[in-house]
């Protein structure tokens, strides 16, 4: 264990300790040409999924042949600010839901349509489209009342040492932010870019796919997409990112 940690620490050059005040978007760690690509909607490939989502928004689905737009109208107004408040407690079921789960819940409960597979193109596109409507707005999730135990569970997960490397999320994303890990700099772990276009994947992907990559990285069990543990963690990460601006679709390495 000690040797693994030592290796991790020695691999990192430079030393900047992260605090809540210094947390920044991983966008700022990108090289200038990739930052420019994210900023240009005509060059950012993530916008392709936003466009796909826009098409799906008004496409009828399910037994009632209803589309999202029939109830929610123009997403550019009705969905503005929604993603910045997710994950959130669903009033009806009392469950904590992230945006993907909310979209699927809407499909099964209100549209008599089948749930879309997590990480499938359609759910990625719809999630990206809805999240994109909050671009530039500050993340502001509820972490009190019914959400409080979920936030606390997410916080515990974040600080718990995991996997064969026996490291916690915090040991990278608080203690070693900005330091080098191979060709990368370690980010503050803000979940503001998602779904994001990741160059490693050569496509759009969800936050949970990214979390699964983290789990693999520390050789911990990769949990299922939409698993309660990851949704709790997502809430903690969002709470920790309070006030930071949504940037979907982000571009990441």
């Amino acid at each position: 264990m000690r040797s693994a940690l030592l290796a991790l620490v020695v691999l990192m050059a430079g030393a900047i300790a992260a605090t809540a005040e210094t947390r920044t978007s991983a966008r700022e760690l990108l090289p200038p040409e990739l930052q420019a690509q994210q900023a240009d909607d005509d060059a950012n490939p993530g916008m392709l999924w936003v466009t796909s989502g826009q098409q799906l928004w008004s496409m009828p689905a399910g037994a009632n042949a209803k589309s999202c737009s029939e109830c929610h109208g123009d997403a550019t107004t009705s969905m503005r600010g929604i993603a910045a408040r997710y994950p959130a407690i669903d009033a009806k079921s009392g469950r904590l839901m992230n945006l993907e789960q909310r979209i699927n819940n809407c499909r099964t409960a209100n549209m008599a349509a089948a749930a879309l597979p997590y990480e499938g193109e359609d759910l990625l596109a719809l999630t990206a489209y809805v999240a994109h409507q909050s671009r530039g707005l500050p993340v502001s999730v509820r972490i009190d009342n019914a959400a409080a135990p979920h936030f606390e569970a997410g916080r515990r997960f974040y600080f718990e040492r995991q996997g064969q490397l026996n490291v916690s999320c915090s040991q990278c994303h608080d203690d070693n932010v900005g330091r080098r890990l191979r060709g990368d700099r370690i980010s503050s772990g803000l979940p503001t870019a998602w779904p994001a276009y990741r160059l490693d994947w050569q496509k759009m992907g969800s936050l949970h796919r990214r979390l699964r990559a983290c789990s693999l990285g520390v050789r911990a069990e990769q949990l299922d997409f939409g698993s309660p543990e990851y949704v709790n963690l997502e809430l903690y990460l969002a709470g920790r990112a309070d006030g930071h601006l949504v940037e979907t679709p982000g571009l990441r390495k």
Binding site: S3, L5, L6, A7, V10, L11, L216, G217, V218
Partner: peptide, 21 residues
């Protein structure tokens, strides 16, 4: 970088899962 000259096995252990791809 000189700081990266560490025990090779340690480095492999630390990054083993990460380099899977």
């Amino acid at each position: 970088d000189k700081t990266q000259l560490i025990d090779r096995r340690d480095a492999l252990r630390a990054t083993g899962a990460i380099v899977l791809a």
